[in-house]
């Protein structure tokens, strides 16, 4: 058997470039081409909707404050996690997350299904002084959110930008964004809001009825986490077959 000789390749710049290009192209194609069909791997489920404007602003605060550094949003399909947190997270639940906030480390508990687990009053008490309700907590206090008025002027731009990356916000949703924030935080004239965003949690979230603060938005976001999917409806068989 003749020995393979790499000397000619190494001695010709053109041949070296050409063969390197071919090898990298194969690797690239194997990694990239399947991504064109990535949509086909997401099991469609009923109930997942875009975030309401108030929830989206709360999500921005969650991102700004770096909550994802200590809290994951990803219940993995292990028995201990499912026993503790509920049904494991499915891809469709974060299809409108840009960027997703799955996180990679749990200093605090997972929050993928925290919505509806605690009352609004608990969230306020906990965010103001975590150790007042969980004595062993090492979470910092976020009491200042109670005192910061929520900036809502740019909400249309936020929704517009999210539409640009594929979240199906309609013109109507974007036009009424400010009104929807008002309706969700006050509980008044919520019919249009609920028609656009079914099952949205309504009410004064931070216990200060006369003010719309960042605490309102953050709790509105926390209370919707993991509550959109109707798990009695979904079928999670392997979609490959």
């Amino acid at each position: 058997m003749p020995r393979f000789n790499h000397a000619p390749i190494e001695r010709s710049a053109f041949l070296l470039f050409l063969l390197t290009f071919i090898v990298i192209s194969i690797g690239g194609l194997v990694e990239i081409v399947p991504l064109f069909k990535i949509e086909s791997t997401v099991t469609p489920v009923k109930g997942v909707r875009p975030y309401t404007p108030l929830e989206q602003l709360g999500r921005n605060i969650y991102t700004r404050e770096g909550c994802y550094v200590c809290h994951s949003q990803m219940v993995r399909p292990f028995r201990d996690e499912v026993d503790r947190y509920g049904h494991y997270s499915i891809a469709a639940e974060s299809m409108y997350d840009h960027p997703f906030l799955w996180g990679s480390k749990r200093t605090g508990p997972d929050l993928a299904r925290v919505g509806g687990k605690y009352s609004n009053a608990w969230h306020v008490a906990h965010l103001e002084d975590p150790r007042s309700v969980v004595p062993v907590s090492i979470m910092p206090s976020y009491a200042f959110l109670m005192d910061k008025d929520l900036v809502t002027e740019d909400i249309r731009d936020h929704l517009q930008a999210l539409r640009g990356v594929g979240v199906p916000y309609t013109d109507e949703m974007i036009r009424n964004a400010a009104a929807d924030i008002e309706a969700q935080a006050t509980g008044e004239s919520t019919d249009a809001l609920l028609a656009r965003y079914p099952k949205a949690k309504i009410g004064d979230f931070d216990g200060q009825p006369n003010r719309l603060t960042e605490m309102d938005a953050l709790i509105a976001y926390l209370q919707v986490l993991g509550t959109m999917v109707d798990f009695t409806d979904i079928r999670l068989e392997t979609p490959g077959k």
């Binding site: 399947p34 991504l35 064109f36 069909k37 990535i38 086909s40 791997t41 993995r76 399909p77 292990f78 028995r79 499912v82 494991y88 999670l236 392997t238 979609p239 490959g240 077959k241």
Partner: peptide, 19 residues
């Protein structure tokens, strides 16, 4: 990812079945 869903593999193992 395949044309319809992902390729399940000959063993058809999945973490949800394991769970």
């Amino acid at each position: 990812a395949g044309v319809k869903g992902f390729l399940p593999g000959a063993l058809e193992w999945s973490s949800s079945k394991q769970l």
